[in-house]
Amino acid sequence: MATTPKILSTLPNVFTSLHEAKIKSKLTFAQLGEAIGRNEWYTTAIFYGQARPDKSDVEKLSAALGLQQGFLEEAFGEDFFPLRGLGEFPPQDPVLYRLYEVIVVYGYPLKHMINEKFGDGIMSAIDFEGDVEKVKGSQGEDRVKITLNGKFLPYRRW
Protein backbone atom coordinates (compact mmCIF):
# COMPACT_ATOMS: atom_id res chain seq x y z
CA MET A 1 0.00 0.00 0.00
CA ALA A 2 1.43 3.38 -1.01
CA THR A 3 1.89 6.01 1.65
CA THR A 4 2.73 9.68 1.53
CA PRO A 5 6.35 10.60 2.37
CA LYS A 6 7.02 11.79 5.94
CA ILE A 7 8.64 15.05 4.72
CA LEU A 8 5.18 16.21 3.63
CA SER A 9 4.24 16.79 7.28
CA THR A 10 6.58 19.82 7.20
CA LEU A 11 4.99 21.30 4.05
CA PRO A 12 1.69 23.05 3.27
CA ASN A 13 -1.32 20.70 2.89
CA VAL A 14 -1.49 21.07 -0.90
CA PHE A 15 1.51 18.74 -1.23
CA THR A 16 -0.15 15.99 0.81
CA SER A 17 -3.25 16.46 -1.35
CA LEU A 18 -1.17 16.10 -4.53
CA HIS A 19 0.47 12.91 -3.26
CA GLU A 20 -2.83 11.41 -2.09
CA ALA A 21 -4.44 12.19 -5.46
CA LYS A 22 -1.45 10.63 -7.25
CA ILE A 23 -1.80 7.45 -5.17
CA LYS A 24 -5.53 7.32 -5.88
CA SER A 25 -4.98 7.89 -9.62
CA LYS A 26 -2.34 5.14 -9.81
CA LEU A 27 -0.35 7.39 -12.17
CA THR A 28 3.45 7.46 -12.06
CA PHE A 29 5.43 10.67 -12.05
CA ALA A 30 6.52 9.82 -15.60
CA GLN A 31 2.85 9.59 -16.67
CA LEU A 32 1.99 12.82 -14.86
CA GLY A 33 4.96 14.53 -16.49
CA GLU A 34 3.70 13.40 -19.87
CA ALA A 35 0.19 14.63 -19.02
CA ILE A 36 1.41 18.12 -18.15
CA GLY A 37 4.20 18.29 -20.75
CA ARG A 38 7.08 18.37 -18.27
CA ASN A 39 10.08 16.20 -17.43
CA GLU A 40 9.41 13.48 -14.84
CA TRP A 41 11.97 14.96 -12.42
CA TYR A 42 10.56 18.49 -12.67
CA THR A 43 7.03 17.16 -12.23
CA THR A 44 8.07 15.28 -9.10
CA ALA A 45 9.71 18.47 -7.76
CA ILE A 46 6.33 20.22 -8.02
CA PHE A 47 4.92 17.59 -5.63
CA TYR A 48 7.50 18.62 -3.00
CA GLY A 49 7.21 22.37 -3.48
CA GLN A 50 10.67 22.51 -5.01
CA ALA A 51 9.48 23.67 -8.44
CA ARG A 52 6.88 26.26 -9.36
CA PRO A 53 4.09 25.07 -11.67
CA ASP A 54 2.74 27.59 -14.16
CA LYS A 55 -0.97 28.11 -14.90
CA SER A 56 -0.97 25.44 -17.61
CA ASP A 57 0.71 22.93 -15.27
CA VAL A 58 -1.94 23.60 -12.62
CA GLU A 59 -4.79 23.13 -15.12
CA LYS A 60 -3.32 19.86 -16.39
CA LEU A 61 -2.54 18.54 -12.88
CA SER A 62 -6.10 19.33 -11.85
CA ALA A 63 -7.46 17.35 -14.78
CA ALA A 64 -5.04 14.42 -14.39
CA LEU A 65 -5.53 14.06 -10.64
CA GLY A 66 -9.16 15.12 -10.23
CA LEU A 67 -8.25 17.93 -7.85
CA GLN A 68 -10.19 21.18 -7.87
CA GLN A 69 -8.38 23.65 -10.09
CA GLY A 70 -9.26 26.56 -7.78
CA PHE A 71 -7.61 24.76 -4.85
CA LEU A 72 -4.38 24.34 -6.83
CA GLU A 73 -4.53 27.87 -8.26
CA GLU A 74 -4.83 29.29 -4.76
CA ALA A 75 -1.97 27.14 -3.43
CA PHE A 76 0.32 27.96 -6.35
CA GLY A 77 -0.68 31.60 -6.76
CA GLU A 78 1.52 34.66 -6.87
CA ASP A 79 2.57 34.21 -3.23
CA PHE A 80 3.98 30.71 -3.81
CA PHE A 81 7.74 30.42 -4.01
CA PRO A 82 9.52 27.06 -4.13
CA LEU A 83 11.41 25.81 -1.10
CA ARG A 84 14.40 24.09 -2.63
CA GLY A 85 16.09 22.74 0.49
CA LEU A 86 14.11 20.18 2.48
CA GLY A 87 14.83 17.97 5.44
CA GLU A 88 17.81 17.24 7.64
CA PHE A 89 21.41 17.70 6.65
CA PRO A 90 23.02 15.32 6.21
CA PRO A 91 19.91 13.42 5.21
CA GLN A 92 18.79 10.44 7.27
CA ASP A 93 16.74 8.71 4.57
CA PRO A 94 18.88 5.87 3.13
CA VAL A 95 18.31 6.82 -0.53
CA LEU A 96 19.14 10.47 0.11
CA TYR A 97 22.05 9.59 2.36
CA ARG A 98 23.61 7.38 -0.33
CA LEU A 99 23.33 10.19 -2.89
CA TYR A 100 24.95 12.51 -0.36
CA GLU A 101 27.61 9.84 0.20
CA VAL A 102 28.38 9.79 -3.54
CA ILE A 103 29.16 13.51 -3.36
CA VAL A 104 31.15 13.14 -0.12
CA VAL A 105 33.23 10.29 -1.56
CA TYR A 106 33.50 11.39 -5.20
CA GLY A 107 32.80 15.14 -5.01
CA TYR A 108 36.40 16.38 -5.29
CA PRO A 109 37.25 14.11 -8.22
CA LEU A 110 34.03 15.25 -9.93
CA LYS A 111 34.87 18.91 -9.26
CA HIS A 112 38.38 18.39 -10.63
CA MET A 113 37.06 16.75 -13.82
CA ILE A 114 34.56 19.59 -14.34
CA ASN A 115 37.30 22.20 -13.86
CA GLU A 116 39.67 20.28 -16.14
CA LYS A 117 37.12 20.03 -18.93
CA PHE A 118 35.43 23.44 -18.58
CA GLY A 119 37.70 25.69 -16.54
CA ASP A 120 37.03 27.47 -13.26
CA GLY A 121 33.27 27.36 -12.71
CA ILE A 122 30.25 25.41 -11.56
CA MET A 123 27.28 23.48 -12.89
CA SER A 124 24.06 25.44 -12.62
CA ALA A 125 21.23 24.04 -10.52
CA ILE A 126 19.01 26.77 -11.99
CA ASP A 127 19.55 26.01 -15.69
CA PHE A 128 19.35 22.28 -15.01
CA GLU A 129 17.70 19.11 -16.25
CA GLY A 130 17.84 15.66 -14.73
CA ASP A 131 16.70 12.15 -15.53
CA VAL A 132 16.51 8.84 -13.69
CA GLU A 133 16.59 5.57 -15.61
CA LYS A 134 16.39 1.92 -14.68
CA VAL A 135 19.13 0.08 -16.57
CA LYS A 136 20.63 -3.43 -16.49
CA GLY A 137 24.19 -3.96 -15.32
CA SER A 138 26.74 -6.34 -16.81
CA GLN A 139 25.53 -9.13 -14.49
CA GLY A 140 21.86 -8.50 -15.34
CA GLU A 141 21.25 -6.61 -12.08
CA ASP A 142 19.02 -3.57 -11.86
CA ARG A 143 20.98 -0.32 -11.72
CA VAL A 144 20.04 3.32 -11.16
CA LYS A 145 21.31 5.75 -13.80
CA ILE A 146 21.05 9.40 -12.80
CA THR A 147 21.83 12.12 -15.33
CA LEU A 148 22.59 15.61 -14.07
CA ASN A 149 22.63 18.12 -16.91
CA GLY A 150 23.36 21.70 -15.91
CA LYS A 151 24.64 24.72 -17.75
CA PHE A 152 28.30 25.51 -17.05
CA LEU A 153 28.76 28.84 -15.30
CA PRO A 154 32.34 30.14 -15.39
CA TYR A 155 33.54 32.26 -12.50
CA ARG A 156 33.90 35.86 -13.62
CA ARG A 157 37.15 37.75 -13.15
CA TRP A 158 36.75 41.24 -11.82
Rank of each mutant, 00 (worst) to 15 (best):
G87A: 06
P82M: 04
V105E: 14
P94Q: 09
E101Q: 14
R98E: 15
V104H: 12
V95P: 01
Q92V: 08
Q92G: 13
P82W: 02
F89L: 10
L110K: 04
Q92R: 10
Y106L: 15
V104K: 15
Y100R: 01
F118L: 08
F118I: 01
V105P: 01
N115S: 13
Y106F: 15
I103H: 06
G85I: 12
Y106A: 15
K117T: 10
N115M: 12
F118R: 10
F118C: 07
F118W: 09
K111V: 05
V104D: 13
V104M: 15
F89Q: 02
G107L: 04
H112N: 07
Q92Y: 03
H112P: 00
H112F: 05
H112M: 08
F89W: 14
E116V: 00
K117W: 08
G119A: 09
E88S: 08
E101V: 03
G87C: 06
F118P: 00
G85L: 13
V104I: 13
E116A: 12
Y97V: 00
E101M: 13
N115Q: 14
M113E: 14
V102F: 07
I103D: 01
H112L: 09
L83W: 00
H112A: 12
K117S: 11
L96E: 12
N115G: 03
P94H: 12
F118N: 02
I103G: 00
V102C: 06
I103L: 14
D93M: 01
G87N: 06
G85D: 02
L99C: 03
V95Q: 09
G119T: 08
Y108I: 04
P109D: 03
F81R: 08
H112K: 15
L96G: 08
D93Q: 13
M113R: 11
G107P: 14
F118Q: 06
V102Q: 06
G85S: 05
Y108W: 10
L83G: 06
V105G: 00
V102E: 09
F81V: 04
F81C: 00
P94R: 13
V95L: 11
R84S: 03
P90G: 09
V95M: 11
Y108N: 04
L110H: 03
P91H: 08
Y100D: 05
P82A: 03
G85R: 11
K111Q: 13
V105S: 08
Q92M: 06
V105Q: 14
L110I: 15
V95W: 07
V105I: 13
Q92A: 03
Y97D: 04
P94C: 10
F118K: 09
L86H: 04
E101W: 08
F89C: 03
L96R: 14
R98H: 09
Q92F: 05
I114W: 11
V102A: 14
R84Q: 11
V104T: 10
K117E: 14
V105N: 11
E101I: 04
R84Y: 01
G119L: 12
F89M: 07
Y108C: 00
F81A: 08
D93N: 15
V105A: 11
V95Y: 10
R98M: 13
L99H: 05
Y108L: 05
N115K: 11
